[in-house]
């Protein structure tokens, strides 16, 4: 459903993405892994319309995506759950979820209400803190809230930027463990950008390894997890012992 063909992106004089090809199929979870500064977030930002590609094309459901208009990308069925979660500190959990459906609120109130119940069913923790301000949630709860808020837009493709950032290992496991289930329930595909390579590869169907702005390796996530080069570069010494 999403196809990137030799996409280049520049930030000023910096050549951040150097010809990225990428493919995401219906209902698939695709991981993009790589070190800090490899261009992962830029790649997601470009798909979400935050940055304009200087070369190449991005097709979503066979149509080019608009860029520079972040607020219109939601209507196309793509929703970015940004890095560091970007929670609204003083708004309640309930308000976050309702605002997540901002574009649909007027059109189908009934549907939004149903989705609201369904999302809370997926995140029972949030159910218990509907009136709490977002700023008072723990890191893991905020991440769940950010994902839940993204789901409320009913995207066909959900983009997650570093959902494990700053979370305790057990919480990472909890969050990652939910992703497959919510993709199935909401019939959405997902691109997962992660520095936590192991967690990402364990969750995804397919994965791309990004290094200095270019894809250096791609394949089934399970295969990459077993790949020596990946183990050497990203899974750390603990693995080889």
């Amino acid at each position: 459903m999403l196809v990137l063909r030799s996409v280049h992106v520049h930030h000023g004089h910096l050549h951040v993405l150097k010809g990225v090809d990428l493919h995401v199929g219906e209902g698939e979870i695709v991981a993009i892994v790589g070190a800090n500064g490899a261009g992962k977030s830029t790649l997601l930002g470009t798909i979400a319309g935050v940055y304009a590609p200087t070369e190449g094309e991005i097709l979503f459901e066979h149509k080019p995506l608009p860029y520079g208009k972040v607020e219109h990308i939601v209507d196309k069925g793509i929703c970015l759950v940004p890095e560091r979660r970007q929670i609204f500190d003083s708004l309640s959990v309930k308000d976050h979820l309702l605002l997540g459906a901002y574009r649909r609120q007027r059109r189908d109130r009934q549907e939004v209400k149903r989705d609201y119940e369904r999302v809370l069913g997926l995140f029972p923790k949030l159910q218990t803190m509907l009136d709490r301000p977002g700023g008072l949630l723990s890191g893991g709860e905020q991440q769940m809230l950010a994902i839940a808020r993204g789901l409320m837009a009913r995207p066909k493709l959900l983009l997650l930027d570093e959902p494990s950032l700053g979370l305790a290992p057990l919480v990472v496991k909890e969050v990652m463990g939910m992703l497959r289930g919510l993709c199935d329930q909401f019939h959405t595909a997902m691109i997962l950008v992660e520095q936590n390579v192991r967690a990402a590869l364990q969750t995804a169907d397919y994965a791309y390894v990004l290094e200095r702005g270019a894809i250096v390796l791609h394949g089934k996530a399970a295969e990459l997890l077993a790949d020596e080069r990946v183990a050497e570069a990203y899974l750390g010494a603990a693995d080889r012992r």
Partner: peptide, 13 residues
């Protein structure tokens, strides 16, 4: 509170 996150949700600033 957070214009960027608001735009991501489709709110037209």
């Amino acid at each position: 509170i957070n214009p960027f996150a608001a735009r991501l949700m489709g709110i037209d600033i």
